[in-house]
Design a protein around this nucleic acid. Sequence first.
DNA 1: ACGGGCATCCACCGATCGGTGGAGGGACGC
DNA 2: GCGTCCCTCCACCGATCGGTGGATGCCCGT
Lengths: 206, 206
Amino acid sequence: MIRVLIADDHPVVRDGLRGTFTAETDIEVVGEAANGQEVLDRVERLGVDVVLMDLRMPGMSGVAATAALARRAPGVRVLVLTTFDSESDVLPAIEAGATGYLLKDALPDELLRGVRAVHRGESVLAPAAARLLMGQVRAPARRALSDRELEVLRLVAEGASNRTAAARLFISEASIKTHLQHVYDKLGVRDRAAAVGEAYRRGLIG
Amino acid sequence: MIRVLIADDHPVVRDGLRGTFTAETDIEVVGEAANGQEVLDRVERLGVDVVLMDLRMPGMSGVAATAALARRAPGVRVLVLTTFDSESDVLPAIEAGATGYLLKDALPDELLRGVRAVHRGESVLAPAAARLLMGQVRAPARRALSDRELEVLRLVAEGASNRTAAARLFISEASIKTHLQHVYDKLGVRDRAAAVGEAYRRGLIG
DNA sequence: ACGGGCATCCACCGATCGGTGGAGGGACGC
DNA sequence: GCGTCCCTCCACCGATCGGTGGATGCCCGT
């Protein structure tokens, strides 16, 4: 039996969700919460396996509640269930420790499968959220510099200005600037000197 | 007994030098040479301790002969004896392995002391040559960065702007700029990115 | 066929930097 | 005491750079 807590500040939504699980024999809704503080409260008292968490709640937000749960009750899985697939929500929620992220327009069947999946510890992501997450996660991951970018960076490390680098590679100064902008993005720096330093530290050049 | 070889393409000069040593009981002129090739020849045959070397000779120059001696007969001391204290001669001669560098207008007494000194392995330099050497050697020779300069450079390598570097070191932006100018001078570069690159290449940081 | 990465190019703008020529004080060696 | 280096600070200027928001074409993988 999977013990579920429904966290949403709208009673109507809570009722709707509760209804989704009534027919299921392996899932039991053991409680509800209208804000983050209540979530922590109920989890502590009721013995919860999975929290269906809305992110937008008054008082303590769903993200904050998720983060608090990750620390205090790491065994409890959080399945974020929210209206928007806004990028401003997905990443913080995942970082806070959510195991799944679904949209409220998910079909009841998807929701059931989602609950069972996160209960098993599997990650569940709405397609839109998944794509966004991949993109965001791939960004901090060290994207390799392209050959051209590395070429430009080497010249810069030797003292070339944008102009002279352009002359040496037979391309325009504008292209050098673009390449360098990409290098800055990929290395997480904001100027050429830092890019050179970071490149040496990472062993990209030298 | 110090065995001396006189190398100069002018017979008159050779005679003059030879005369300088005739009265000396501890110095013996064992031969003469008119060019570099002859120097190598005589040294090989005669058992020479000190070569009085003119730099301007037809054929193999005195510098080349000095370099050859350093490899083939490292025990033989070379005392350069030339007319000009031109900077173009001093450095190559020293680098080639000359033990001393005197001008031909040196007093006979100075010359005698010079021969005895280089025979003991001591360096002998005409004052003008000495000053020039110090200057020349100190300039291209990698002048070390001061502690402060290195500190600033490290911050720059991490991406600090002049302003933020100033804030971190609790000094003014103007001082940062001055330090960096000195760094550029010492490393032979013209901008912060190249300075960072050069510093990594030289192992000053990283 | 579409998206994604790559490489190339453009214009505009403010911010920053590099270059120059100073200045003064403190430390050290001669 | 004098020279030299180091560290600090100032003002002015032109040059360069970084940021933004585009655009095009190519190639690749699906």
